[in-house]
Amino acid sequence: MAKQFPALGADHQSFIKAQHMFFVGSAAPTGRVNISPKGMDSLRILSENRILWLNVTGSGNETAGHLLEDARLTLMWCSFERRPLILRAYGTARMIHAGEPGWDDHLARFTPIPGARQICDMAIEMVQTSCGYAVPFMDFAGERDTLRHWAEDRGEDGLRAYWAEKNATTLDGRPTRPDTTLA
């Protein structure tokens, strides 16, 4: 049932754009594997082999720390509505932080989201589709605005303090930035 492709075709891209959420999977060479759901308007397809996603503040920052040690990344979408399909993009990625080359140009591709802390730039090496026959049907009720309000309420200084306290290291104690500080 599974099929592999060297890149995102037009049908794959249409499927991705129709989904309301995606999942990110990453791991360092040792330690915990992380799978994280992502939502909001935080993903852009740049080409058949390149995707950007805007990483907003969360309770952890595992992917950023993992990518410093092992650039492997998997993104996954699954349809909860009509079409039974699971799509995975496998590749390598790097995080771009505010002030680093590329940040301003890439950030301009997104509608501003309070608490944006990194942009993940992924090079796709393989795409795989599978049936999704066992994925349940679920109705989309709308976007949550909780994270947006949470970040707005903290303001820039409050977010920086939160990043320093909660997002500077992974669960395994690995730094989440190359210089181990937050911008």
Rank of each mutant, 00 (worst) to 15 (best):
M1P: 03
A2K: 12
A2Q: 12
A2L: 14
K3F: 11
F5L: 09
A7V: 07
A7F: 14
G9Y: 03
A10I: 01
D11H: 08
S14Y: 06
S14H: 10
F15T: 02
K17R: 15
A18P: 00
A18K: 13
A18W: 00
Q19T: 03
H20C: 04
H20G: 11
V24E: 09
V24S: 04
G25F: 08
A27M: 07
A28Y: 09
P29I: 13
P29Y: 06
T30C: 00
G31K: 09
V33Q: 11
N34V: 06
N34K: 02
S36A: 14
K38L: 07
I45C: 10
L46Y: 10
N49R: 15
N49W: 05
L52K: 02
L52R: 11
L52W: 15
W53F: 15
N55T: 12
N55Q: 14
N55G: 06
V56I: 14
S59N: 10
N61F: 09
T63E: 05
T63R: 06
A71N: 09
A71S: 15
R72M: 00
M76I: 07
M76Y: 06
M76D: 06
W77T: 11
W77S: 08
W77R: 04
E81G: 03
R82K: 13
R82F: 03
R83G: 02
P84S: 09
L85F: 03
L87T: 04
A89I: 07
T92S: 12
T92A: 03
I96N: 05
A98C: 01
G99M: 01
G102R: 05
D105M: 02
D105W: 07
H106F: 14
H106D: 13
T111E: 11
T111Y: 07
P112K: 07
I113F: 11
P114R: 04
G115A: 05
G115H: 05
M122E: 07
A123Y: 02
I124E: 08
I124P: 03
S130Y: 08
S130E: 14
G132W: 04
P136L: 13
P136S: 07
F137K: 15
M138L: 15
A141I: 14
G142C: 07
E143R: 12
R144I: 02
D145G: 14
D145R: 13
D145Y: 13
T146Y: 08
L147E: 05
H149Y: 06
E152A: 00
E152Y: 00
E152F: 00
R154K: 15
D157H: 11
D157F: 00
R160A: 14
Y162E: 10
E165S: 11
K166L: 00
K166E: 11
N167P: 03
A168P: 01
A168V: 08
L171C: 04
D172N: 10
R174T: 01
T181I: 07
A183K: 05
